[in-house]
Amino acid sequence: MVKPEILIISNRYDFACDYICACLHEENSNYLRLNTDDLLHLHVFMNPINGEIEIKIDDQLYKIDTDSLKSILYRGPTYLRETSVLNLSPEDKLSKSQWTAFIRTLMVFDKCRWMNHPHATYFAETKAVQLKIAHQVGFQVPNTIITNSDLWHEKITPNSANEVIVKGIDTIYLGIGEKLAFGYTNVVERSNLSYETMSIAPVFLQQYLDPKVDLRVTVVDKEVFSVEILVDRQGVSGDWRLKKDSVEYVPIDLPIDIKTKCIELVSKLGLSYGAIDLARVNETYYFIEINPTGEWAWLVDQSNLRIDFAIAQFLNRGV
């Protein structure tokens, strides 16, 4: 029987976890990776009172208990627990929902170190909460309202281009057949936001920052990894994710006060990891949002930022 000290919850296509596992393997760490898309093939036995789980994978038995487990890496965004958007049979929906619920039962392991705890992830995924706490720690934030009304025009400061940022209150995943469509941030002319387009559901409306330079700041505990996101050495207008094939990620050193605010923001949200999007306008740094399960693997490859090593070291240290 193997008693892992580190538990990784991921999926088989999560390349970021591949990097982390490689680091853990080099350190001879005692870890177990559970891929959520393989759970159907496992045999699990859990005692929630004692905080013990036995998992049989092929012919190997693993025992996870409170005394031996020192850290958990939980890579799942909490909004993906909703299965109604998927074109699944009732049986598949039942299976998916209950296995997802089983993963959440790992919260009984409350003495170990988490990255990130589901409670904190759920809290931090709320964009309104992000903005409020970012403001509290001293970040500049764009003028923002949440509304489904067309009577919003005096609430958002217009810019010279007369445009505004529009994005969902929560991450948008829409089921289209058997596929999921992702909702990006959009730059929209103010005149195009009529009652007919606004009344369906509330949205985030934000002051449009332009020209700007986008920054991705990845915080691992107290370590900070930062890049500028550029196209032809210039900032990107609108959502840079729509131009992923063209952008360049250039490592930078943030000013000390901005770096400190990033660390404080992650801590106040109850996280040990956060992928923060900032926008620099002239010399002012605006907080845009934070993703508690944001991707980072491409920064290892393209910018040589050893985020994988930092996470592995965090998991190895335990509480």
Rank of each mutant, 00 (worst) to 15 (best):
residue 270 G to H: 01
residue 316 N to R: 15
residue 1 M to W: 07
residue 239 D to R: 07
residue 96 K to H: 11
residue 294 G to Y: 11
residue 86 L to H: 05
residue 133 I to A: 04
residue 53 I to Y: 00
residue 207 Q to F: 08
residue 6 I to R: 08
residue 77 P to Y: 03
residue 24 L to D: 06
residue 190 R to H: 05
residue 99 W to R: 11
residue 11 N to A: 09
residue 43 H to K: 13
residue 230 L to F: 11
residue 283 E to D: 15
residue 271 L to V: 09
residue 28 N to W: 08
residue 250 V to C: 08
residue 210 D to M: 03
residue 102 F to V: 07
residue 198 M to L: 15
residue 138 G to E: 02
residue 153 H to C: 12
residue 66 T to R: 15
residue 313 Q to H: 13
residue 16 A to W: 01
residue 229 I to K: 01
residue 145 I to A: 02
residue 198 M to C: 13
residue 65 D to Y: 02
residue 28 N to F: 11
residue 10 S to N: 06
residue 176 I to L: 15
residue 92 D to G: 09
residue 80 L to W: 05
residue 306 R to N: 14
residue 317 R to M: 12
residue 291 N to W: 05
residue 250 V to N: 04
residue 255 P to Y: 00
residue 190 R to Y: 04
residue 206 Q to V: 09
residue 281 V to G: 07
residue 307 I to E: 00
residue 127 K to W: 03
residue 45 F to T: 15
residue 82 E to T: 09
residue 311 I to R: 00
residue 182 F to M: 13
residue 45 F to C: 12
residue 148 N to D: 14
residue 136 Q to M: 07
residue 31 Y to M: 09
residue 104 R to M: 09
residue 299 L to H: 04
residue 309 F to K: 15
residue 275 A to M: 10
residue 195 Y to E: 04
residue 105 T to S: 08
residue 227 V to M: 04
residue 49 I to A: 14
residue 15 F to S: 10
residue 123 F to H: 06
residue 238 G to D: 09
residue 296 W to F: 14
residue 102 F to R: 09
residue 304 N to C: 12
residue 67 D to T: 12
residue 128 A to L: 10
residue 1 M to C: 13
residue 87 N to G: 06
residue 235 G to Q: 04
residue 72 I to C: 02
residue 210 D to W: 02
residue 205 L to Y: 05
residue 237 S to T: 13
residue 234 Q to N: 15
residue 202 P to Y: 03
residue 161 A to H: 15
residue 191 S to L: 11
residue 173 Y to V: 08
residue 23 C to E: 11
residue 238 G to W: 05
residue 228 E to P: 14
residue 308 D to A: 05
residue 166 V to E: 01
residue 175 G to F: 04
residue 256 I to R: 13
residue 61 L to P: 01
residue 204 F to H: 02
residue 154 E to Q: 14
residue 56 K to C: 11
residue 246 S to F: 12
residue 119 H to D: 06
residue 251 P to Q: 06
residue 318 G to C: 05
residue 269 L to M: 13
residue 155 K to T: 08
residue 287 F to H: 05
residue 305 L to V: 06
residue 108 V to T: 10
residue 242 L to K: 15
residue 1 M to K: 12
residue 318 G to Y: 00
residue 170 D to V: 07
residue 219 V to Q: 03
residue 216 R to I: 07
residue 69 L to P: 06
residue 235 G to K: 03
residue 66 T to W: 01
residue 184 Y to P: 11
residue 166 V to F: 03
residue 140 Q to C: 14
residue 74 Y to S: 05
residue 50 N to L: 10
residue 20 I to Q: 01
residue 283 E to W: 08
residue 306 R to V: 14
residue 275 A to Y: 00
residue 199 S to T: 12
residue 105 T to H: 03
residue 228 E to I: 12
